[in-house]
Design a binder for these strands. Structure first.
Lengths: 260, 260
DNA sequence: CGGTATTTTGAGTATCGTCAAGGCCAGTGG
DNA sequence: CCACTGGCCTTGACGATACTCAAAATACCG
């Protein structure tokens, strides 16, 4: 299966900026081994333990990474948005399972073919290396959020992170009479696991933030951010608020490797 | 400055297994640009924001990564042990500052020279890639620990992580009449930041674990683990306990890229 | 040995977890 | 169209846990 547009140019990865910038012949080689998959919500595409023989790029939708504990409980440890990569390269089994949080589309590559290209192409190799560096920083940012002693603070940090990660992703951020809205792609129960709390506490924290005028809750999965500064303050990270407010919005570029 | 042993072979990286396994000519090239630095406790070797022009490998001692918030508070987000790498390659400024938690020795490479070698050598490139993959998984493990709702659980998880990370590191693990002891390389205050709690709560959690017979507190920075299973249970990760107990101890190998 | 920083303890309050019940919404079947 | 059902979110009440502020004890260092 190949992806060619009307003018016969490779277009499969056009929405994934980092791939689109690769040399033409490399894109062609990638195109030959790639496959587009539609995922319905809730579909699990990778199980921990068993070696996963695919490397995937998210094209549309939100996936979540989760650790499944022996007793069956599931522990969300991250979100994948368009432009993100999942799957191990070169070594070992996946540490986490991956599940579609929304309808999603992913490009998948057979692992060994992808690794062969990786070894042959410095550009792709560099791309992956930079991607992983970014991922490390993101996960450390998660840690900073999680180490806030109070649930309200962690939730505020989570909302801030959604803003930065969703900035370039269609349908996740919006505006209501001039104010920023953000979609919350996971359930209260999952959010509770992610933030180290119970679903009830998460619910109370949402409404506490609403009572203080920082947010409005339109639907459980859609909130208006009324005061980014106050949220950033609540999260204990003054710098994040400024970043969100001052930065311009290059909405054409998806999956930038630069951190926001 | 070069590092040659009595028989005139390169020996600088002998304690860092991953570097020692590189081809000879590459080790030689690395050796030419590398520098050994002794760090005294508390010394800060990287500041966030300002681009850091060095890539470092930890040879001895423990360093901590921390985020310095605008108001001056410091937020530990990880520990570096011998074999670990710090510093950004190719892109941007450091996100976190790095400080020596103990006396330490590090090998540092000028960033651009290191990048040049990286581009020229697939083996080194692969090494770094795998290292970063491991680092991502480690940080996600941190997340799982941090998302435990109770301080006792987070502390138990922290102790388990110390065991796995310190396994091959001299002076951090010991034994007292048959039982495992572990050194705690950071202060209560830093641990509190790391685990999302206050120093008082950390202290109380330590003594709560001691009262339940899971640990003995020899000194504030040295504890005996009396029941790894119970600790793992407290941490909510039954699998970790088994891993620590059943695994053999290849103490000659430092800085394995394989996850413990 | 004294002085300082760190750790611990204590008491009171705020927050959070827990259990239970109720509400909202979408889908189902009468 | 409506009642019913099940999942998810919310609310309430209560006990457990953790934060706060203060003070004491311990460890550390010269």
């Amino acid at each position: 299966m190949t992806f060619l547009d009307a003018t016969n140019r490779l277009c499969a990865f056009s929405m994934i900026a980092d791939l689109a910038e690769l040399p033409h012949d490399l894109r062609e080689a990638l195109n030959k081994i790639c496959q587009l998959r539609h995922l319905r919500q809730g579909q699990v595409i990778a199980h921990p333990g068993e070696p996963h023989d695919l490397v995937g790029f998210v094209a549309e939708g939100i996936l979540r990474m989760q650790k499944t504990l022996p007793d069956g409980r599931q522990h969300v440890v991250g979100l994948l948005v368009p432009g993100d990569v999942y799957g191990r390269v070169f070594d070992g089994a996946m540490q986490f399972s991956i599940e579609a949080a929304t309808e999603a589309k992913v490009f998948v590559f057979p692992r060994h073919a992808f690794e062969a290209l990786l070894s042959a192409s410095p550009a792709l190799d560099r791309l992956m290396l930079l991607h992983f560096l970014t991922e490390i920083d993101r996960t450390r940012d998660w840690m900073v959020i999680l180490s806030n002693p109070k649930v309200r603070g962690r939730l505020a940090g989570f909302l801030m992170m959604l803003c930065t990660r969703f900035r370039n992703i269609e349908g996740m951020l919006g505006s209501m009479n001039g104010m920023l809205t953000v979609s919350i792609p996971i359930s209260r129960a999952d959010l509770a696991h992610l933030l180290g709390a119970r679903a009830e506490s998460i619910s109370r924290a949402f409404h506490a933030l609403a009572d203080d005028g920082m947010i409005d809750i339109i639907r459980p999965d859609l909130v208006v951010l009324r005061s980014i500064e106050d949220l950033a303050d609540e999260a204990g990270e003054p710098e994040m608020g400024e970043a969100i407010l001052t930065e311009d919005l290059p909405s054409h570029r998806i999956g930038s490797l630069r951190r926001l």
